[in-house]
Design a protein around this nucleic acid. Structure first.
Lengths: 182, 182
DNA sequence: GTATAATTTCATTAATTACTGAAAAGACTG
DNA sequence: CAGTCTTTTCAGTAATTAATGAAATTATAC
């Protein structure tokens, strides 16, 4: 496995961005490599293409699997694991949103729920509890919405995004309708 | 400045989550402290409340300012800087989205645009270019939509989120309308 | 101007995270 | 089940990132 200069530019960029994205360079590079690869790659090919150690590849694949960003498959008469990144960018996007939510938001939501079971009612703690409640409310609103949207089929989701701010008109139309009924 | 056990739980949690969120523990803790504080705090108070060094506080405040997550204000007859986190959780959310976009997405969008100025048309590079184009298209769709939505007032945004999957009905209604016209 | 308070900078040290190489474990073959 | 291929684990090392303390800078007061 050798990579072209064109491929390398992309791979190296993902490696550099890795730290901003909360993954390490190796994981970023491997994901980039798989994303643009026209065929599945085994661990040895990845190791060679990126000039890293075999064990590093192994650890990275484990992590990428935990993120559900790669899939394993097998070729006939070859017992090595071959890896691919899913083709569909929408699927990838949904996976990323779901995983980041699980890792970066859920633990906090859970902590907030705990802190609000018996909220203090006096002094600065009461004020803190109010702020915690505001934060939790926002989190639940946004994540609930993400849940709903991730259930939309791609066509509807695309349509929604392209609508952009136009959604406002749609909503005010809805508001009027509701008001009329009342 | 001493913190209660109730406040500490929240502050320590934010410190621990910091690494997942791409900030360090100090920044996470300071932000948490300011978020729940009923009054602005100066650097010395923060330093004391968290048991960190004065210089660490200084660096963290610089970083938090760069994220636009804190504001500086002054009290009469006191020349020290006092810090607050904005009150409005929606404003905070929008800031977070905008900053993460700027740091985590824009650099990649920019790289992709560059790589697609003169896309290769042969072999594996051509395939790679196709994948890059798909990625860029998705990024532009999502960020464009984020732009639009961040311009919505809070009421409309809340309404939109609460609507959740119901947006599908609204959209299909819109589709019918458009089809009728045609 | 000089003195004092407040903040920032930065070289050093500490802590954390990433990577390697060697060894172990697992999986299939004959 | 011995031999071979493949993957995983993990202790040690390298690299990176975070935090400190001392010194420098900035800002205000006298």
């Amino acid at each position: 496995m050798k990579t072209t200069a064109y491929q390398q530019a992309f791979i190296l960029h993902f490696g550099e961005m890795g730290s901003r994205w909360g993954i390490n360079r190796t994981i970023g590079q491997i994901y980039a490599l798989l994303y643009i690869s026209p065929r599945p790659l085994n661990a040895e090919q990845i190791t060679e293409a990126l000039g890293i150690s075999r064990s590093n590849t192994s650890m990275a694949m484990k992590e990428l699997s935990a993120w559900r960003l790669v899939r394993v498959q097998h070729l006939p008469d070859d017992r090595r694991d071959y890896f691919t990144a899913p083709d569909d960018v929408w699927e990838i996007f949904r996976t990323l949103v779901a995983e980041r939510r699980r890792r970066e938001i859920e633990p906090t939501a859970s902590m907030l729920r705990g802190a609000l079971v018996a909220p203090p009612e006096q002094g600065d703690d009461a004020h803190a509890a109010t702020k915690l409640a505001e934060m939790l409310e926002l989190i639940e609103l946004v994540t609930g919405w993400l849940d709903d949207v991730s259930d939309l089929d791609q066509r509807t989701a695309t349509q929604l995004m392209k609508l952009g701010g136009g959604v406002q008109k749609l909503l005010s139309a809805g508001r009027r309708k509701k008001a009329d009924k009342a």
